[in-house]
Computed example of a mutant assay.
Amino acid sequence: MSSAEVEAAAETALATGDHLQASGADYEAVLPEVIRSPVNMEFAEAVETVLRDLRAQCAVRPDIRREEGTGITLWAPDGSGQGLTPHPDGTAAELLVHLADQVQDWAVETLWSEGASAIWPHCPTHPDTHPLTATVRADAAVWGSPKKRGTTVARIGELETHWSGFESSAG
């Protein structure tokens, strides 16, 4: 998709309020434009960071809408939606954890409604038993195992680089 096509698709989605229906490379190209305009940039970047992890490990992709008055909403195939709200006060790491919790709620509900394992993100040490937990450790937003307290699996936004074998082992 050329940069002119990306801009045109993003402008159309923003102007009409339509949700993002692109997939694959188109999804990756248009997503930042839909999220960022005219949302607070720190919030937009945090949303993009958390959505990297969703794309890395979740079988269901959201339709994403920027909605007047409510911000960004993730829509599931069954028509249910989850609004994403910024953390009212706090550090950048706390904002990421707050958003990761909201995206995790969306993913678990959506996976369950699709008849899939309602665990996201998967714990590499305890597959199919529990999801990872978003938390702040040493001023960084991370995914950790709730069964092994203090264990960090990956920084939020970096699941794909730390556990790239997920898709082949999940099949």
Rank of each mutant, 00 (worst) to 15 (best):
G150D: 10
D139F: 00
P131M: 07
G90S: 15
E48A: 14
A56V: 04
V34A: 10
T49C: 15
I156T: 07
E67G: 01
R155V: 08
L95T: 11
E42A: 15
S164E: 13
Q102S: 06
M41D: 10
L99W: 06
E160L: 10
I119C: 10
T70G: 14
L111D: 09
A138M: 05
H87Y: 04
S80E: 14
E167S: 08
W75N: 01
T129A: 12
D101Q: 13
A93V: 05
A56L: 05
A170L: 06
G69E: 02
P131R: 15
E160N: 15
T152L: 03
R36K: 11
L54N: 05
G150M: 09
P38N: 07
S117H: 04
P146W: 01
T135H: 06
C58K: 05
G165S: 14
E109D: 11
H87I: 00
A141E: 13
L159R: 10
E114Q: 15
T152K: 10
A46L: 04
E48H: 03
G83E: 09
V34G: 12
T110F: 05
S164H: 08
E48K: 05
E42K: 09
A140E: 15
G83Y: 00
R155K: 12
P124F: 00
L51C: 09
L95M: 15
L159Q: 08
F166S: 04
L96D: 13
D89F: 06
T125A: 12
G150R: 11
D105T: 13
L51R: 01
P88F: 00
K147Y: 06
M41S: 13
V103T: 03
I156K: 08
T125G: 10
P121D: 11
G79Q: 08
Q57C: 09
P121H: 06
V103F: 04
W75S: 02
T152P: 03
T91N: 11
D63V: 07
H122Y: 02
S113K: 09
W75G: 03
T73K: 05
L159I: 07
T70C: 09
S145G: 08
P86F: 01
P121M: 07
T161F: 03
V50T: 07
H122R: 13
A107W: 06
S164N: 12
G90K: 14
D63T: 06
R65W: 08
W163F: 11
R65C: 14
H130L: 13
D128P: 00
D89V: 10
K148V: 14
E114P: 08
L95W: 02
Q104G: 03
D101E: 15
R66S: 13
L84A: 07
T135Y: 00
A44D: 03
T49H: 02
P121K: 10
L132G: 07
T152A: 13
P77A: 03
I156V: 14
Q102M: 06
M41L: 14
H126T: 10
V47W: 05
D128Y: 04
G165I: 00
R61E: 13
W112S: 15
A76D: 14
W106Q: 01
L99K: 06
A118H: 07
A76P: 08
D78Y: 01
E158N: 12
L84K: 10
V60L: 07
I156G: 07
A138Q: 12
H98M: 02
P146K: 01
P38D: 12
A92D: 15
G165R: 03
L74I: 05
P146H: 00
G157V: 09
